[in-house]
């Protein structure tokens, strides 16, 4: 089998590739949990994660690859319940990349790291033949406080499903820029430290968390439903999507549920804590549109169901293929 673009989609093909090659080869019980970071024993509990950033264009409305590579890794640490502390970064630069661009990217990384309260403590640079591309890998380390136990399999019947804001902004901003479509859509690329800290401080019992990146909300909730063997019910009218993104998706035949963000998270919390958790999100930067979008309705079956605005119900599957525009 050859690698195809679908293997990088964040959807089902990505999961299959990871399960088939990396999970099997590396064969580590912590890695096999497939959480956003590995939580390890040691001096306290350490969370470790890594991510590579290959976005084009390097600069886009609302961010750049530098802000993205910090946010992505910081958010993955946060989603495991960890307080992010350290980052490493590896640059792979293609011959012809511009040093001024690189400086802008580094400054953006530094600014975002300060905002997120993390230090960039190690790095590496390689240059390869090519045509000016810039790729960055970041790894992150964080510490998981006592009493925090976050994982997809912890979702329980009755739990509330929260979304921290509107879907699809980053994906739509990148696609618009790539396709030369002029609109006002801006990437939501942001570190989610503030809202996660607020929830933890106020004692919200968070059962599962994920940042909504490639593969979209649909893929994440399907992973939750599989891991916890539960049925998740969503109310489409509660899921925030900006009118601009909705219009953009309509034109291209994309579904916001499949679209990627870089500054949004979904949290599954104990039912009594739902309102408090939404309050924490809404009061924090980047969370003003947070909402309860659904519930864990039952245990014992794996499914994600969506109630549509006209009163219909449909199954929400994970993203298949690349999430491509329709053709007519």
């Amino acid at each position: 089998m050859k690698i195809t673009m679908a293997h990088g989609s964040g959807g089902e093909s990505t999961s299959e590739l990871i399960a088939d090659i990396f999970e099997k080869s590396f064969n580590d019980p912590v890695l096999s949990k497939m959480e956003d970071s590995a939580v390890l024993p040691g001096a306290g509990r350490i969370a470790v994660t890594t991510d590579s950033f290959v976005v084009t264009p390097l600069f886009f409305p609302g961010g750049d690859i530098g802000r993205l590579c910090v946010c992505g890794t910081v958010n993955d640490l946060l989603m495991s319940g960890a307080d992010p502390e350290y980052l490493t970064c590896g640059f792979i630069l293609e011959e012809g990349a511009d040093t001024e661009d690189l400086r802008k990217i580094a400054v953006s990384m530094s600014r975002t790291a300060r905002e997120a309260g993390v230090r960039i403590v190690a790095g590496d640079t390689k240059v390869v033949e090519g045509s000016g591309g810039v790729y960055i890998n970041t790894a992150g380390v964080g510490f998981v406080p006592d009493g925090i136990n976050v994982g997809a399999s912890n979702c329980r019947e009755g739990d509330a499903v929260l979304l921290s804001g509107s879907l699809g902004d980053h994906h739509a901003a990148i696609l618009s820029k790539r396709m030369g479509i002029e609109n006002t859509i801006v990437s939501d690329c942001a570190p989610l430290v503030g809202m996660v800290d607020a929830m933890k401080r106020s004692g919200v019992r968070i059962h599962a968390m994920r940042d909504v990146t490639r593969g979209g909300l649909a893929t994440i909730l399907n992973e939750f439903a599989s891991a916890a063997v539960c049925r998740i019910g969503l109310d489409e009218s509660k899921i925030p999507v900006s009118p601009q993104v909705r219009g953009f998706c309509g034109i291209l035949g994309l579904d916001p549920l499949d679209m990627g963000n870089e500054g949004k998270m979904v949290a599954v919390v104990a039912p009594e804590d739902a309102e408090r958790a939404v309050g924490c999100m809404r009061k924090s930067r980047y969370g003003e549109n947070a909402a309860v979008i659904g519930r864990v309705e039952a245990e014992g079956e794996s499914a994600v169901l969506l109630k549509t605005p006209i009163g219909g119900t449909r199954v929400v599957g994970p993203l298949y293929g690349e999430g491509l525009p329709r053709i007519c």
Binding site: D255, L306, K307, I310, G312
Partner: peptide, 16 residues
């Protein structure tokens, strides 16, 4: 039309 097929699924119309 295929776009109708997709819209019918998306809106969960069959079960209504």
């Amino acid at each position: 039309c295929g776009t109708h097929t997709a819209a019918i699924s998306k809106n969960g119309i069959a079960r209504m």
